Amino acid sequence: MDAVPAGAPQGALFDGAPAVLPAATDAHVRALAQALQVRWGGRLHLGTSSWHFPGWQGLVWQGRHGDALLSRHGLQAYAQHPLLRCVSLDRAFYRPLDAATYRALAAQVPEHFRFVVKAAALVCDAVQRAPGTGAALQPNPQFLDPAAALRLCVQPAVDGLGPQLGALVFQLSPLPATWLRDTAALHRRLADLLAAVVPAVPAGSLVALELRDAELLTPPLAALLRSHGVRCCLGLHDRLPAIDAQLPMQRATWPGDLVCRWNLQRGQRYAQARDRWAPFDRLQAPDVPTRTTLARVVAGTLNAGHRAFVTINNKAEGSAPLSVIALAEALLGLP
Rank of each mutant, 00 (worst) to 15 (best):
A3S: 11
V4H: 06
P5M: 08
A6G: 11
Q10C: 01
D15M: 00
G16L: 08
G16N: 12
A17E: 15
A17F: 11
A23Q: 03
T25A: 14
A27Y: 00
A27R: 13
A31N: 10
Q34Y: 10
A35T: 13
Q37N: 11
G42R: 14
L46P: 09
T48L: 00
T48F: 01
S49E: 06
L59A: 12
G63D: 12
R64F: 03
G66K: 09
G66Q: 07
L69P: 04
S71P: 02
G74T: 06
G74K: 01
H81N: 13
V87A: 06
D90Q: 06
P96F: 03
A100P: 09
A106H: 03
A106G: 15
A106W: 04
V109S: 09
V116T: 13
A130R: 15
G132Q: 04
P141Q: 12
P146Q: 05
C153M: 01
Q155S: 14
D159E: 15
L165E: 03
L180A: 09
T183M: 04
A184V: 12
H187W: 08
L190T: 14
L190M: 08
A191K: 01
L193G: 03
A195E: 15
G204R: 10
L206F: 05
V207L: 00
E210S: 14
E210C: 00
R212I: 07
L216H: 08
P219F: 03
R226E: 07
G229P: 02
L234D: 06
L236G: 10
H237Y: 13
A252C: 10
L258G: 10
V259K: 04
C260S: 14
G267W: 06
R269E: 13
P279Q: 11
Q284M: 13
T293C: 13
V297L: 10
V297W: 04
A299G: 10
H306V: 00
A308I: 01
N313C: 15
N314V: 12
K315G: 06
E317W: 13
S319A: 14
S319E: 02
V324Q: 11
L334F: 03
